Amino acid sequence: MTWQIWLVFLTTSAILLALPRRSMIDVASFAVGLGRRSAFATVTGVIIGHLCAAALVFALAVTLGLASPFTLSLIQGAGLGLLAIKAINLWRNPTATEPVADNDNLPVEKPLGVVAHLVKRTTIQPDSLILVAAFLPQFVPLAMANPSDAFALIGAFAGMAGLVAVAYALAAFKIRKILQKHRRRRASDRSRGTVLIAARSVTAGYRKIAA
């Protein structure tokens, strides 16, 4: 494939993968709840999950394209329609539909459990599967001409998903630091107020005794 097609593929992949989905919200949730130690596990889970989902979609699409090119063209048209609907819904309601969980609501905490959870989210969750199934078949005819391009597209898609997950994790780390700083500052302000009230009470009591 030409570098122009690769540029379109990578740019479009980055935009679509950056959409707020349950798997990426989970990345942010683990980052807020567990801190930096969750980043390696969440990014690994996202990459593995997207590798599995992309490989499955590509295998089915290539098989279908070889058996019935017309059916593949119908699937490509339906995929473009789904992507358009997703874009319209995001434009009308840009906020995520589910909140970021705190550390009390995390489903798992151990690294292997986090990896397995993200793999499951990416390969089974409907929003992720629909995204992969709608987008990747658009490039199947190009990959069919050269099988090595199919593996390259799958790897690039999973790698881009990993980079997006890193961005989500870093953003969550920054939000976590801001929240922690705000909590420390609020606790400090409260303690200062308590000390000031206590000092005034002691002074008032001393004056009353002296009088």
Rank of each mutant, 00 (worst) to 15 (best):
V140Q: 09
A67R: 03
A31Q: 09
L83F: 05
P147D: 15
T97W: 07
S38N: 01
G33Q: 04
I154G: 06
K120L: 08
R186G: 15
A96P: 02
D26R: 08
A156F: 15
R192W: 15
I178Q: 04
N146I: 04
K174R: 12
S128K: 00
L60S: 03
T12V: 10
T123V: 05
L112D: 11
E109V: 03
L34A: 06
I178Y: 10
T2M: 06
T194S: 15
H117K: 01
R176P: 01
A84C: 11
A172M: 07
Q180R: 12
S191R: 14
V202C: 08
T203G: 14
P107T: 05
L112Q: 05
L72N: 04
S148Y: 14
C52E: 02
T123P: 00
A156P: 02
T12P: 04
R185Y: 14
A143Y: 14
P137C: 09
I209Y: 14
T63R: 03
A172C: 09
L129N: 09
G33T: 15
F40M: 08
L16F: 14
A150E: 02
R37A: 13
T42W: 02
Q76V: 01
L17G: 01
W91H: 09
M1V: 08
H182T: 11
V43A: 11
T63D: 04
L66E: 09
P147C: 11
L196V: 07
T12R: 02
I130W: 13
F58R: 00
R21W: 10
A158T: 09
R37F: 10
N146A: 14
L16H: 13
T97Y: 10
A187Y: 14
G155N: 10
F173A: 03
P137A: 06
Q76Y: 06
P137F: 06
I88M: 04
K177F: 14
A39W: 12
A152Q: 13
A87Y: 07
P94F: 05
V195G: 00
A134L: 12
S38T: 07
I175K: 13
R207H: 08
L83H: 02
K181F: 15
S73V: 08
M160T: 05
T2H: 15
A169T: 07
K181W: 11
L118D: 06
A198M: 03
V164E: 02
F58C: 04
I25G: 11
G79Q: 00
L19S: 14
A18W: 04
I209T: 15
L131D: 01
G65P: 09
A101D: 10
F9M: 01
L179V: 09
K208D: 13
F173T: 07
F58E: 04
R176T: 05
K208F: 13
L56P: 00
V62F: 07
Y206T: 15
I175M: 12
T44E: 06
A39P: 02
A165R: 01
T2D: 15
V8T: 13
V140E: 12
W6I: 00
S68D: 10
A59C: 10
A145E: 12
T44C: 11
G81C: 04
D104Q: 08
V46S: 12
A54E: 09
Q138V: 00
